[in-house]
Design a protein around this nucleic acid. Sequence first.
DNA 1: CGGCATACG
DNA 2: CGTA
DNA 3: GCCG
Length: 374
Amino acid sequence: PQDRVHLHGPSRDHDSRSPSDSISLPPSAFAAVPTLSVYRKSPRPCPNQALVDELAVLRSWRFLQHGTGAPESISYATAISAIIGAPKIDNVEQARKLHKVGPKLLIKIDEFLTTGKIAESEETRNSAKFKALDEMTSVYGVGQKTAVELYENGIRSLEQMRALDRWPIGFKYQEDMQIKMSRADCESVANFIRIQLDRVEPGAHTVLLGGYRRGKTHSSDIDLLCTYPHEEGKEKGILSRLLYRLLAKGLIPEDGVLWSSSFASHNVAPERASTRSFDSLDKAFVIFRHPANGITRKRDYFRRVDIIITAWSTFGSAVVGWTGSTQFERDLRQVAEKKGYKFEAGGLFDKQTGVRIPTLTEKDVFRALDIPWL
DNA sequence: CGGCATACG
DNA sequence: CGTA
DNA sequence: GCCG
């Protein structure tokens, strides 16, 4: 929704890759680019998209070599996030003003500004190892460690991986899951689920989050958050009922529940449910069969969908926690920690007492953490 | 030189 | 460890 | 890799 680009939600795309034009701002604006992603907007299209595209290759390479949580990776993720949130960079002096962009990154940026590209990025893109690891991690359930291990054992392609016969689910739906969804696709899938949820328990409020909410034109998965406004507790037990119904209708294939917090094949013991009564979030990661419509979809497509159920009292936290971006979430948790809170999608907590602060709306979260609403 | 988000199965 |  |  372009009319909300000034708000936190849709302008929160601090680590994405979106198409670009170029918008220049006065140099004075550079001093004002805030430290953390939670304190700055992230307009689309990104004015520095070409530069970001070059650096993103190096970031991916670091992810593949060290994992996403490694310092080598985080330094690039935070720097790129800063560049995404900055006005058009025309010279190194402007780049030097960006927080989290240090000497090493400046050399790369300088090279880009003078030559229009970064040699190391080009080499990386073309490297056989990069391509192999990148491809192998595209399989659901295969991360950096596994990919590196496979590579060390001589595995180089999806075909070789498939022959190993580990990750049966990953390969079964692999091709469809590579296909990005348009915003219309996301809305269509959401509507299928809404209809079934309404049969399970009417009155739910549902909203699409993730990349869709950040304004991305294409998404690789769908994040659908569901709650029952003003009816605390009504959401309890809804997720498993919904999953059973979707399975029964064939909208989720038999093997399509990849992960679920409340849907064990053997039923969850009741005492466990009460022990974890403060877990206000239920979630399921599924494969959704998006039925053909004969027009835009000639056949059924299998799509990755995350269904999240939240209590009404923590709806705001759930919205914030499931909108992203990844960098936004990291920065937000840092701010919370520094101010004596603990933030997670299931709620905002006082670090000392452990008491949960009610966060009915997204703004409640920002207000409590004293983060301006942009 | 320590820290870098956090939770869950 | 992998995924969100 | 960058910051405090």
